[in-house]
Design a protein around this nucleic acid. Structure first.
Ligand SMILES: [Zn+2]
Ligand SMILES: [Zn+2]
Ligand SMILES: [Zn+2]
Ligand SMILES: [Zn+2]
Lengths: 134, 134
DNA sequence: ATAAACCTTAGGGTTGGGTCTAAGGTCAAC
DNA sequence: GTTGACCTTAGACCCAACCCTAAGGTTTAT
């Protein structure tokens, strides 16, 4: 049994974050002391590790909730469902990557055309390009 | 001279967005009618195009403000400064891309190990991996 | 017995880039 | 002379994922 501060310290997060996870149904401590202090069991800690690991691979808290639901009712779900979620998430991330690559390339294209010298920017091709009427 | 609704329509944005840009010093209409209506000149429209173009290559509104400052005082800045900003931004974006690539690869690693079949997820390797104690 | 460290709650604040509402003023057309 | 489209303002609300504060209760160590 861990109190909130102990668990938070162990996983390098803020106690407020644990309360936040509880409020959002991600991690409800399995018991409370007579005075109301939260008590987290080893299973609770395991679930926290699940949450942190899912977060680290890019899932949002809402998505993690879905994953937890599945994990806690594995019999009612198929591998297909789980794999589908993961692949869908990978696709979303890929789309984001493609967008950012476009941004990066646009910026690099701008930078390449600029002399980068110490003289006045009155002739700067970057600013000209941004001003340019499409 | 365009009223706010006309300019918004022309550039497919919300009139509120133009007021928001004004509040944040990005685009102050060059005049007002006697009754207080905003009037945007062709130069204002040009500046809006600058803003939208800079946004489209991934600059934040704060960064766009800096770019506008530079653009409006070109003589006081050097190409070096402008190019430096653009390159710094490209670096930040590259860092984000690298992060997302890691997420994507993690997810693809998980998906690859899962059979993806229609049977129960009780043996699902994805859920197991997320549960695994590190 | 008291101080320090920890816990509780409700509720407000942050960031970024807006969107929406309420309550009212203006302007052209029919 | 009134409808309807447009405009004004201040201020609230949205998203995510928390962080912080106030006012008070609990535990532990000395
Ligand atoms: Zn130059
Ligand atoms: Zn230049
Ligand atoms: Zn399977
Ligand atoms: Zn599986």
């Amino acid at each position: 049994m861990y109190r909130i501060g102990q668990l938070a310290k162990q996983y390098q997060i803020n106690a407020d974050t644990l309360r936040y996870y509880e409020k959002n149904g991600l991690l409800v401590p399995s018991s409370r002391s007579d005075s109301g202090y939260r008590f987290y069991s080893d299973d609770d800690a395991k679930q926290l590790r699940f949450i942190l690991r899912a977060k680290s691979v890019g899932f949002s808290l809402i998505e993690i909730q879905e994953l937890l639901n599945i994990d806690n009712n594995r019999a009612q779900w198929a591998c297909k469902d789980v794999k589908g979620m993961v692949e869908a998430k990978a696709d979303v991330i890929q789309t984001k990557i493609n967008e950012l690559i476009q941004f990066r390339d646009s910026l690099q294209g701008l930078a390449k055309a600029c002399c980068g010298g110490p003289e006045s920017a009155e002739h700067c091709s970057i600013l000209d390009a941004l001003e340019e009427s499409a």
